[in-house]
Design a protein around this nucleic acid. Sequence first.
RNA 1: GUGGCUGUAGCUCAGUUGGUUAGAGCAUCAGAUUGUGGUUCUGAGGGUCGUGGGUUCGAAACCCAUCAGCCACCCCA
Length: 450
Amino acid sequence: MTKPSLPQGTRDFEPETVRKRNYIFNSIKTIFERYGFQPLETPAMENLETLMGKYGEEGDKLIFKILNNGLDNPEKQDQARKDFENILMGKNSKGIAGKALKYDLTIPFARYVATNHKQLTFPFKRYQVQPVWRADRPQKGRYREFYQCDADVVGSESLLNEKELANIYHDVFHRLGIRNYELKINHRKILTALAELCGGAEKMTDIAIAIDKLDKIGLEKVKEELSKKEFTRQQITVIENYLSISGTNAEKLSKIKSLLNNAGTGEKGIKELEYLVADARLAIDFTLARGLNYYTGIIFEAKAKDVLIGSIGGGGRYDDLTGLFGVPNIPGVGISFGVDRIYDVMEELNLFPASLQVSTQVLFFNLGEEESNVSFSIMQQLRHRDIRCELYHENAKFDKQFKYAERKKIPYIIIIGSKEIEEKTCTIKNISTGEQKTIYQNELISSYQF
RNA sequence: GUGGCUGUAGCUCAGUUGGUUAGAGCAUCAGAUUGUGGUUCUGAGGGUCGUGGGUUCGAAACCCAUCAGCCACCCCA
């Protein structure tokens, strides 16, 4: 019998970790609700064609496909063989796998909006906190199953939405105690305008991918990459000038204006940035690009500053997301929090409150059958007062019972032995200070505060 | 999908050019100690050396395959 193992890139979460993760989830959800977002959940799986082609060529490869049932049916063997041939040729075949695990929350949301848009009240603001799956090779901070926390507003072009989403970032990080972070902002239209200056709008993806790596590989390597993509020396110089723009938000804006020569495409982007950076906590970063190619307007990225970790959140505006599903003209903007990375940041900076790990507040010692019967009925009354209690499961040595309390970080123990039963009292001990006192059982039951 | 490193007790790790019965610390359990824990002392249990095959008189060590983890690339959260 070999030991069972977990599928690659998946994890079990021990109780302590679940509490910490829930603390993050609940904080984020609370803020989302505060801004009027409503919860939505979609199934773990979608029809394969709903997902295929939405994440680019690379993305398609990373979609987890689900094998159809009944492929071994002898009557359908010929068809199954043909379908499988298709797969070997690199084509999709619904006959073998018609469903897939969801890859992110945005496309299923778009599918939901496209199918329900007639019933929805716009602007529709929803948040969604669910696991997603990617058939990627696991690595530091990258898993095959992980949670995304998204909030999107669809059916509104107002920049007020961007302003609100930026404030959601601030509120969430504030609530979690993450003080030293940077909320970076850029605009896809500015990148488009840059691409137009350098060989055409269709070059935008190449430029975006290359400059996104700037802080990772440095300017020289970015230039190398660009020349591999057949940008001319002149074009690379323009991009270099673009990347070297520095200073305050206002300085950056004035420099970008002269660089882009007031070209029409970038103008809207600059205006929108100007509107948003009235909030000085936002930092314009023209090197911010973000991979997902459905973004068309403002893009965001949040980074923790005193921890060596990538982004802890990102998002942006997209025109016409549901157009992919035959419902045009529903624009939207959304943001996402990277829970696993936020977890790592908080762990490293020691930001989780210690109180998270107090589950049971009181442990009743077990001193024998008669004693434990008394303890049990008192314990039930405390439980009904919403105090979390346990009675040790058997009559064991004090040593053992103490150690159980310590390990479970239970702050108080209560001893009720024959002496206490006779006197109708109980002994309460604070495990960390060692203080103890004896009070009447009545008082404990009716009003004692731990 | 491509490349590199690693895998020994519950955990962290030793283990000599391949050589008797594979070790330590922490943890666990028992006792000193069944009405007061954290300290100390004594003792015990715990291993198919990731898995499968191969080389060898002999493999934890060498070779191949496989699985898993870590790291980098591609891409991304």
